[in-house]
């Protein structure tokens, strides 16, 4: 026992932190399965009528077969335990719509969403931090005013509307955006490695495919990023104004450092620590924003999958999606905490 204890404390801080967080995350996921299972039980609506046609639903034999196939004939607690048992073996059950294992569906749809959300997040961070820094430096002068309007617009324009309008303008009117989907019609997907087409194309050196996949990514990612650009810009501006007024920034200037160093090293760094936290939360928001963006751009991602599953009361699919999204939240939060601690040495992980 004491051996275990000393072995545990011999581990590097970071490793201990990750292990502890993963353990807590596991418990959280268990809770999520319970909640999502309970929700699927209490939602009004019957998976039988949602999935079977009228004729089939009126045939008791077919209904019984359907219920037996998806375990709906067993008592509810037993259904849950069965679900957990399969889950431990990496089996999320079978989707009633696609008639495929939910894990297979997720492996197909999730990477598309991750690709989209990550591209949007990178864009939002780069644009938001840049605009926020410029606004803080030019405080109350015209760059600040212009950027204030931009960020206000960013947070107030509804994402769904923006998606429709930009698609209409850039595709129908100007014809510079490629069509919907992840590739041109009939385009061949790159070899499946991560199922993120840009990454896969890059890894296998298919430059044309890379260009096509990237060009399809630009518009949806931008639309998805706009809200976050606005919020990160505002937040960065405030955090920069705060840190620019600190004594240590004045001290950095007194040391005769060039203004660029003062801003980018001494002032931005403390601001970044705060921005990372906001970005982590924004990523969560972005994942839910994908539902709308994906449906406008026919992006075959998890958002669309979740939406269709919800309509069809496809219980296993819904639970699978909730579980995976929860896991992503947990991992992103953990990453945020680690990055925060990397930026600010006063924070100790653990």
């Amino acid at each position: 026992m004491s051996f275990l204890r000393s072995a545990w404390y011999a581990l590097p801080n970071l490793v201990r932190f990750v292990i502890r967080r993963l353990f807590v995350g596991l418990l959280l996921c268990l809770g999520i399965t319970l909640v999502s299972f309970a929700l699927t039980q209490v939602v009004p609506g019957d998976p039988v009528s949602a999935n079977l046609g009228d004729r089939a639903a009126s045939d008791p034999e077919i209904v019984a077969a359907f219920r037996a196939r998806y375990g709906l004939d067993k008592p509810v607690p037993q259904q849950y335990l069965l679900y957990l048992e399969r889950l431990v073996h990496g089996d999320l059950g079978e989707s009633q719509q696609t008639k495929r294992p939910v894990t297979t569906d997720l492996a197909q749809y999730l990477p598309a969403t991750i690709e989209l959300a990550t591209a949007a997040m990178i864009l939002a961070l780069v644009l938001g931090i840049t605009l926020g820094v410029v606004a803080a430096i030019g405080r109350d002068r015209w760059p600040d005013q212009v950027i204030r309007v931009i960020s206000l617009a960013g947070v107030s324009i509804p994402t769904f509307w923006l998606a429709l309008v930009t698609f209409y303008i850039f595709f129908f009117k100007l014809g510079i955006a490629p069509g919907v989907g992840r590739l041109n019609p009939g385009g061949k997907a790159p070899p499946s490695i991560t199922n993120m087409f840009t990454i896969d194309a890059l890894l296998s050196g298919q430059w044309t495919t890379l260009g096509i996949a990237a060009s399809h990514l630009v518009l949806p990612a931008t639309v998805l990023a706009i809200y976050t650009v606005g919020s990160i810009t505002r937040f960065t501006r405030a955090a920069m104004l705060e840190s620019l007024s600190q004594d240590y920034v004045r001290a950095a200037r007194a040391k005769g450092l060039p203004e660029r160093t003062v801003i980018l090293r001494h002032a931005l760094r403390p601001a970044l620590a705060a921005i990372v936290t906001v970005a982590g939360m924004a990523f969560g928001r972005m994942l839910s924003g994908t539902v709308l963006v994906e449906s406008v751009f026919s992006w075959p991602g998890i958002g669309q999958y979740a939406y269709k599953s919800a309509l069809a009361l496809d219980l296993r699919a819904i639970m699978g999606v909730s579980l995976v999204v929860a896991a992503i939240y947990i991992l992103v939060n953990m990453a945020v905490d680690i990055i925060y601690a990397l930026i600010d040495p006063r924070i100790r992980l653990g």
């Binding site: 004594d247 001290a251 007194a254 040391k255 403390p270 600010d344 006063r346």
Partner: peptide, 23 residues
């Protein structure tokens, strides 16, 4: 700007806030 930090240096009032906490 030409002499700041190089020929003319300053130590500030409050050492708790004058050093950068993250560097």
């Amino acid at each position: 700007a030409a002499v700041r930090g190089r020929d003319l240096a300053m130590v500030f009032q409050d050492p708790m806030t004058a050093l950068h906490p993250m560097l």
